[in-house]
Amino acid sequence: MLTLYGIPNCDTVKKARAWLNARGIAYQFHDYKKQGLDESRLRAWVDELGWDALLNRRGTTWRRLPDAVREGIDETTAIQLMLEQPSIIRRPLLDTGESRHLGFSETQYEELLR
C-alpha cells in the first residue's frame, strides 16, 4: 500500500491526491498536522533522502522562522524543527514501501507506479 504524506490544504498534495484518485490507485493519506510524525521515521527519511532535501525552504513556515534559526540550520536542528513543525517538510512525500519520493510530477508518478 502506498502512503502519501503531507498536509491536506497544500496545493501540490492536492494535485498528487487528484492524480492518484483519477487513476484508481489505492493509497493511504498521512496528515502531518493531525497524525504527527515519529522521530524514527523522520530519521530514516533523512538517511535516505537527506535533511536538506526534506526541508521546505519555499513555504511560509520557513519564512516565518527567525534569521538566526534559518542561518544556523544543520541536520540536528532541521530534524528537531521538522518534528516540531511538520509543515516545514517538503511535500508530498510518497512512500511506495520500497522507496520514498519528494514532490509531485505526473511524469515521476507515472514511472514509479507503472
Rank of each mutant, 00 (worst) to 15 (best):
A44D: 07
L94F: 11
R17Q: 15
N9I: 15
G36C: 10
A78G: 10
L54D: 05
L65I: 05
Q35L: 08
Y5D: 10
T12Y: 10
A78M: 04
D38P: 06
N9E: 15
T96C: 10
P86W: 06
K15S: 14
Y27W: 07
V69R: 03
L2D: 13
W19V: 09
T96G: 08
V46A: 03
L4G: 12
V46W: 01
I73A: 09
Q85T: 10
L49V: 00
P66E: 01
G72H: 03
T76N: 00
G24K: 10
W19D: 08
G72D: 00
R64P: 00
I73E: 06
D74P: 08
R41E: 06
N9H: 15
D95L: 12
S40C: 08
R91A: 09
S40I: 12
Q28C: 14
L81Q: 03
E39A: 12
D95N: 14
P8Y: 14
A68Q: 01
I88T: 06
N56Q: 02
D31R: 11
L4C: 13
A68D: 01
K34W: 09
G6F: 11
R43S: 05
P66H: 01
V46F: 01
D67H: 05
L94V: 13
E71G: 07
A53E: 08
L49I: 00
L81H: 02
W19T: 09
Q28R: 13
W62T: 04
R64K: 03
R63G: 08
I79D: 10
L4K: 07
D31M: 11
I88L: 06
A78L: 03
K34L: 15
S40L: 11
W51F: 01
L93H: 08
G6S: 14
N21H: 13
L83E: 00
T3C: 14
L49H: 03
D67Y: 01
G24F: 08
P92T: 10
V13R: 07
V69G: 02
D67N: 04
G97A: 11
S40W: 01
F29C: 09
T3K: 14
A78V: 01
K33W: 05
R58Q: 07
M82W: 05
L49K: 01
S87C: 07
W19I: 09
E75P: 11
T12D: 12
G59L: 02
P92L: 07
T77A: 04
Y27T: 11
K33C: 06
Y27S: 06
G24N: 07
E39Y: 04
R90P: 07
E84P: 01
E84G: 03
I73S: 08
V46R: 00
T12I: 13
R90G: 06
E71Y: 01
T3F: 13
L54H: 03
T12Q: 11
T96I: 11
A78N: 02
T96N: 11
Q85H: 06
